[in-house]
């Protein structure tokens, strides 16, 4: 099977996963609901019955934000006006190349960890569903998922250690190297060139880890393996032996994800929504983008599973 056929089949499988997408979206909304209410209360409290409420309702008040920011703490301190629109997405990408995953608060880190664990739990079920070609009920998905959770959790810890090494050891080392190379540089374009070169191994290792972890999960399901380590070795062998196809598929999937990102950049709503209808529109558009991101992740799993099946 060619890479493009794998991609096509993967897209078809992901398209048939509407229920899974909805369940994941609902899980995402459930996780963020309470923190959102907490933040809303913090903003409301800082506004009081002031005129700033009206200004924020219609647009933005930098003066209010200056005051809010001076006194906010904990979860409330993660709020920034530049997290709106495309800023909501860029912030995450920026975290990967600039400083590792930046969350700003332990609460956000905790929520992020919970959501990651949810995906770790569901990944086994999702891959089984794609492998078996069934449209699962919620109970079936949970059953399939629970079968693999222990193994996927061990893999999650292994990849976590890799990412930790990446951002605690490799990234500081690369930063030091860039600092050394840029030590006497007086042209920002040259400094950027060195920094760009730093991103290549950094992103390369991060994405390679992600790719190998994906194939390890797939092989754990396809071959019903018990040992995560053996599956990992098998995944490494498989990726190495079919490097071109594996990387091409990953790149195509990445491209599809990027297209959605750039489209969202064009239409990402700003802060001028001043009625409930407009706010609802912003919310719906935002959720559509989240749906897109979930769909892209499912497409990664499905396409890579298809390719893996053809390579075995």
């Amino acid at each position: 099977m060619s890479v493009f056929e794998s991609l096509q089949r993967g897209i078809r499988l992901a398209n048939r996963s509407k229920r899974i997408i909805v369940w994941i979206l609902l899980a995402s909304l459930s996780l963020v609901a309470v923190p959102t209410l907490i933040l809303s209360a913090a903003v409301e409290d800082s506004l009081g019955k002031s005129e700033a409420g009206q200004q924020l309702a219609e647009g933005y008040s930098d003066r209010w934000f200056q005051e809010y920011n001076e006194q906010a703490s904990g979860l409330a301190a993660t709020f920034s006006p530049t997290l709106t629109g495309i800023g909501a997405v860029l912030d995450g990408y920026d975290g990967i190349v600039s400083e590792g995953v930046s969350t700003g608060s332990l609460a956000v880190l905790g929520i992020g960890l919970a959501y990651s664990l949810l995906w770790v739990f569901l990944a086994g079920g999702i891959l089984t569903v794609y492998h078996e070609g069934i449209g699962p009920s919620f109970a079936q998905l949970l059953t399939f998922s629970s079968e693999y959770f222990g193994r996927f959790l061990r893999l999650f810890i292994l990849t976590g250690i890799t990412y930790l090494f990446l951002y605690r050891t490799l990234a500081p080392g690369l930063d030091w190297l860039v600092d050394e190379l840029s030590r006497e540089v007086i042209d920002e374009r040259i400094a950027f060139a060195w920094t760009f070169l730093k991103w290549i191994p950094l992103l390369g290792v991060a994405l390679a880890t992600n790719l190998v972890a994906d194939y390890t999960k797939i092989l754990l399901v396809l071959e019903r393996r018990r040992s995560v380590l053996l599956a990992l070795l098998r995944a490494l062998r498989l990726v190495w032996s079919s490097l071109g196809r594996v990387v091409l598929l990953y790149a195509l999937l990445f491209l599809i994800g990027s297209l959605g990102f750039f489209l969202y950049w064009l239409i990402a709503p700003g802060v001028s929504d001043s009625s409930w209808i407009e706010v609802l529109g912003v919310l719906v558009l935002g959720q559509l983008f989240i749906v897109w991101r979930i769909w892209v992740r499912l497409t990664f799993y499905a396409s890579q599973l298809e390719l893996c099946r053809s390579l075995r």
Binding site: L39, D91, L283
Partner: peptide, 16 residues
Amino acid sequence: AIKWMLWLQNTLEMFA
């Protein structure tokens, strides 16, 4: 808060 929530959801997707 809804705008912030969208940021948080996107951050979660990055984690995922």
